[in-house]
């Protein structure tokens, strides 16, 4: 459903992404893994139309994100932080997202409930913890009950309980036939969550396949990851 095709991105003389291609399919959780600075966020930002690629395409059901008719129903995005202004309340943030996306107000209460943020809805985002900010971002992403979720480092800043919650939640989304694409630099936390794995290092995809294919003969995903990204990395 989400198709990244031969994406290249230069910023000045720096090569951020080089010929990155992969796909995230329906009903599966795709883990986009790599060390910090490998190009994960850049790829996701291009997919969401926030950054422009130097060449290549990133399509949602065959269409560029910027050309989607109803983006909130297609893709829910959780990028860094809360994506909300600190002086608004959590509810006010969701209210404007709903208004701009043409989504009925009552849905705001539903998503607040879903991410267990109802109690803090009237608090200003500036007073939120990192984990609460992430949950608010997830709530905004879920307003349109999207077919796909794109999450950049979703477990950063979450406590163990939060990590467990999001794992279960993402597995359920995939089981319901939705597409989930998440990036992370934490391998150990994800091996139970992902079906497919794409490993990126220094702007290039170094391996991709199902979890079993990537892990292969190695003990676990983490060992496979370090074998793939260290040493040979130039």
């Amino acid at each position: 459903m989400l198709k990244i095709d031969r994406l290249t991105k230069r910023r000045g003389s720096a090569l951020i992404l080089s010929d990155v291609s992969f796909e995230a399919r329906r009903g599966r959780v795709t883990g986009f893994l790599g060390p910090n600075g490998a190009g994960k966020s850049s790829t996701l930002r291009i997919l969401l139309g926030l950054d422009h690629p130097t060449s290549g395409t990133a399509l949602v059901d065959g269409v560029r994100f910027a050309a989607l008719r109803d983006p909130l129903a297609k893709v829910g995005a959780v990028l860094d932080g809360s994506g909300a202004h600190r002086s608004r309340t959590g509810r006010a943030h969701l209210n404007w997202v709903a208004a701009a996306g043409g989504i009925p107000r009552r849905r705001v209460d539903e998503v607040l409930e879903l991410v267990e943020l109802s109690g803090a809805a009237r608090k200003r985002v500036g007073g939120y913890s990192l984990g609460m900010g992430r949950r608010l971002a997830l709530a905004a992403a879920l307003l349109g009950d999207p077919e796909a979720l794109v999450l950049d480092e979703p477990i950063n800043g979450l406590d163990p309980e939060g990590i467990r919650w999001i794992r279960t939640f993402l597995r359920e989304r995939a089981a319901a036939g939705h597409t989930v694409l998440l990036s992370s630099h934490l391998m150990g936390e994800l091996s139970e969550t992902v079906d497919d794995v794409v490993i990126i290092n220094r702007g290039r995809v170094v391996a991709q396949g199902t979890l079993a294919e990537i892990t292969g003969a190695r003990r676990n995903l983490e060992d496979a990851f370090f074998a793939l990204t260290s040493g040979s990395g130039r």
Binding site: A66, V75, L79, H93
Partner: peptide
Amino acid sequence: SEYFVDGEDNGRQITTSLTVVPSRTRFLLA
């Protein structure tokens, strides 16, 4: 307010704005 950054881990509102209203022309006209 779209570009305000609050601490290094916090994203800017513009990322939310443009994922909700992806057409930059429509966003600016609004």
